[in-house]
Design a protein around this nucleic acid. Structure first.
Lengths: 197, 197
DNA sequence: CGCACTCTTGACCGCACTCAACGTTGGTGG
DNA sequence: CCACCAACGTTGAGTGCGGTCAAGAGTGCG
C-alpha cells in the first residue's frame, strides 16, 4: 500500500535498527538522519523534498529519522516497492544513481568531519544548503534545525556553532535577520573557507 | 577491454577528478582511497581484494586511489562494463547492494569522525580490519599502511595514533610483535571502546 | 504573565595538535 | 660487510582549538 502522512516537529519516522517495513520519501519539510553512540549523536544528513530514506532492499534501518519542522512523507510498502522494481527494472538504475550521489556527499562529509576547522565546517554547511535550495544561487539560507542539530551534523558543539556564526556575522560574511535565516553577503569568502581557493 | 596490472607501493591508480576511463577492481594488496583539501588529506577507506573502486556510470572519480603495498588490479573498459550491464541487468542490483554496503560503512565512519575519541577511533579501526580479514575472528590484524595513513583515515595525527597504540599495548589490550602487526588480547575492552557496552 | 526552550556570550579546561628530538629499520653503495 | 641515509615510528614538552560549564538574553506558547 501507498500512503501519505504528516509528521509533527520532533516526530520520529523510524529508528536505527528497526526493520524496514516501508520505503519512505519526503514530500515536504526537513528530516534529520542520525546515529547514536554512547549518548553522543552524529547527524549524517538532512533530507528534504524528494529524498528517499534508505535505498530499498535493506532489512534494517542504518540510521534514525526525525522530523525537524512539519513534515509530509509518502510511504510505500516493501512489497509494492519490490513489485515496482520487478516491473520497471530501470528503477534499479535510478536507485543506484541516488546511491552514488549519497556516497559522494558522504565522502565530502567525511573530509569535513576529519579535516576541516569549525569555520570551514559552518561555511560548507551554509553553501551546501544554499546549493540545495530550489533557487540555485539563493542569497538567503534557511536553517530550520536547532544549533544543536547543526553541531551534531558538523561534529562540533552548539556553542562553537553559535560562536562561528557570530564571528562570520561580525566580519560581514553573512547577515542574520533572525536565528534561523542567513543572508550570504560575501560568498567568495565563504566559498574559500568551504572549498579552498 | 579487460586487463590485469601490477601497481607498486605508492603507485597511483587514479586521482580525484580524473575522468573514469575504466572500472577497477582490486585483486590483491591494499589500496587507500582519499580526498585532499588545502594540503590536508582524508582517507575515506582502504580497499582490499574483491572491492570495486567506484560504482560505474559516474563520469569523474570522486576520490584518489593509491597502492599501499604491492597491488594487483583488474580493469574493464567502461564500454565493456556498460555492455555487461545491458546484458545482465541483475548486475545493477549487485552494484546497488555494494553501494548500500559502502553507504553503511560511510555512515559509521561519519559517526567515528564526528563523535568518537582517539582511543575509540583506533579501537574501531582494529576491529574493523579484524572483521574484514578472511578468517573472520582472527586475533591478529595486519596494518600495512603507515601511521600517517591511519591518522588520515581516523581524522587524527600520526603522533596521536602512535600514542594510543602504545597506551593500548601498555594496558595489555593489544600486543604488537612489530609496528605493522597487532595481536588482539582483550577483545572485550576493544569492542566496548569501539561500539559501546 | 510565566515557563520552557533556544541562542548567545564569557571564563576556563583538556584532548588532541604542534614542534622537536631520538630510536628503529630497511635499502644502497662503497 | 658495514657505513650511511632516508623513511618511519616513538616519545616528550608545550600550545591551542574547540569543548565544558555557567549565566544571561531572547522567543514563543499556554
Amino acid at each position: 500500500m501507498t500512503h501519505g502522512r504528516q509528521v509533527p516537529p520532533g516526530g520520529t519516522l523510524f529508528h536505527e535498527g528497526d526493520p524496514v517495513v516501508s520505503i519512505v520519501t519526503v514530500t515536504s519539510g526537513m528530516v534529520k538522519l542520525y546515529k547514536l553512540f554512547e549518548g553522543r549523536r552524529q547527524i549524517i544528513g538532512f533530507a528534504t523534498q524528494g529524498r528517499f530514506l534508505g535505498l530499498g532492499n535493506e532489512s534494517f534501518h542504518t540510521f534514525s529519522a526525525e522530523a525537524i519542522d512539519e513534515v509530509e512523507i509518502c510511504s510505500f510498502s516493501r512489497d509494492l516497492f519490490d513489485q515496482a522494481l520487478e516491473r520497471f527494472p530501470q528503477l534499479t538504475r535510478v536507485l543506484l544513481e541516488r546511491a552514488r550521489d549519497e556516497l559522494t556527499t558522504a565522502y565530502d562529509q567525511m573530509l569535513l568531519l576529519g579535516r576541516k576547522t569549525a569555520r570551514e565546517r559552518v561555511a560548507s554547511l551554509l553553501l551546501g544548503l544554499a546549493g540545495d535550495a530550489l533557487d540555485a544561487d539563493a542569497h538567503t539560507v534557511s536553517l530550520p534545525m536547532t544549533r544543536n542539530d547543526i553541531a551534531d551534523y558538523l561534529g562540533l558543539t552548539l556553542e562553537t556553532v553559535s560562536r562561528v556564526l557570530t564571528e562570520l556575522r561580525k566580519q560581514h560574511v553573512i547577515a542574520m535577520p533572525n536565528a534561523h535565516l542567513v543572508e550570504i553577503i560575501d560568498r567568495a569568502t565563504l566559498s574559500e573557507l568551504a572549498y579552498g581557493p
